[in-house]
Design a protein around this nucleic acid. Structure first.
Lengths: 221, 221
DNA sequence: CTCAAAATGTTGTAAAAACAACAATTTTTC
DNA sequence: GAAAAATTGTTGTTTTTACAACATTTTGAG
């Protein structure tokens, strides 16, 4: 079955047996969709009847405020869900827009099938639930991290706070970030050109080095 | 039993039957603690062996960054949990500090007892799980809201974005916020005095009105 | 009630970011 | 591989915020 093959590829389900994945594929109403780079997978305000699992590629969650300003909330990778917070919090529409930043494959699960366990309380539901809870929790922590960056006084501190976190996450002073400069500015909610000059200054001072999406946080040791 | 009486008071458990609350009280290792205004209930970095439920009062989740700047992440009310994100995301310590903003009663649940269902998979575990998942999801949405405020260009837009959300949440143009001016500045990560003058200007312009913690968002209609 | 402490408002100055406009470079597309 | 589009860097001006210092008001403790 096609859903099965798709779920099998998701790194987050690495530990799950084929039998369980098979069960999940048949138990849930699910469909597969493909999107090109730049396409909107979900638009904020869309009715919430599906929950999305990114099975391949990356996408950005964006938000447009009351005056049309768009800013990137966070970046989602293969294995991440989208829309579960809304589903569990009993919202009736998506709060953010999901945009493919490269070719993306998603699995769409029926919302009601997902949040309420089926009559026989099958194991696959438990497995999926556990994964989703962990996703939501991790995302809440990631959002708290982002808040810490945004709470910094200036652009310099914002970007350093962000890079610090990314470095820690990667476990190395050398690491790739999922954003280009324009996107990073959007993520940090600062002016792109101002960010550009701050980054240039930091590089000149020998605090950091970067090339494309690869950064090097030069520490004390 | 004392835990039972405490849980009975929590608004979030209004729909739960006495029998279930009784079961929860006996099933989980739980203890009750009291804190005065200003006391730290949990300090960031503390080992994560308990999960906290605020059963009475309010508290602020705060965070201290690498250079000692403290900022308020969000405000928790009776019925809110603290530390579940970390528990589910398999962290080993608390990410934020929890400070009582008034006399507070909390119920401390044993972490391991909470995140892994007990052998007999009792109903009370399911009830508590459901509540916690909803809490985490709602909080993730609240954090996204906060990110929207912090992403605004200037103080004026930040504070208006915040008040808009609070008004919507309250379902009225007149509403109370959980912060005084100093705390609001901390929450919005701006200079207190600058916020003060912006608020004064908004009041003068007739956009808003406020007194203490009560605000009035004067709309078009 | 009184005093001390905390919160709030006000102002001027210095610093920083937003904004705008453009050049240079890189990436994408046909 | 050439042209078009997008990204990135650069600079000067304007606007906004941070910062600091202080006056006033409110809150809280004894």
């Amino acid at each position: 079955m096609e859903i099965f093959r798709e779920l099998k590829k998701v790194p987050a389900f690495a530990g799950v047996s084929d039998k369980e994945l098979q069960a999940m594929s048949s138990c849930f109403k699910a469909e597969i969709c493909f999107f090109d780079k730049g396409q909107e997978i979900i638009r904020q305000g869309d009715p919430l009847d599906k929950v999305i699992l990114i099975s391949k590629g990356e996408a950005n969650a964006q938000n447009e405020d009351m005056f049309g300003n768009i800013s990137i909330i966070l970046n989602l990778k293969a294995g991440d869900f989208f829309g579960i917070e809304e589903a569990y919090a009993e919202q009736d529409c998506f709060k953010d827009t999901l945009v493919a930043t490269e070719p993306v494959t998603v699995v769409l699960f029926d919302k009601t099938k997902i949040i309420s366990p089926c009559a026989n309380n099958c194991l696959c539901h438990q497995i999926l639930s556990k994964r989703m809870i962990k996703t939501v929790s991790s995302r809440a922590l990631a959002l708290t991290d982002k808040i810490k960056h945004l709470s910094q006084r200036g652009i310099r501190d914002k970007v350093l706070s962000y890079l610090q976190t990314q470095s820690l996450l990667a476990g190395s002073r050398y690491f790739d970030i999922p954003f280009n400069k324009t996107e990073l500015a959007s993520y940090l909610a600062v002016e792109r050109s101002a960010l550009s000059s701050v980054l240039g200054k930091l590089k000149q001072e020998g605090v950091i080095d970067f090339e494309k999406k690869r950064y090097h946080l030069k520490g004390k040791n």
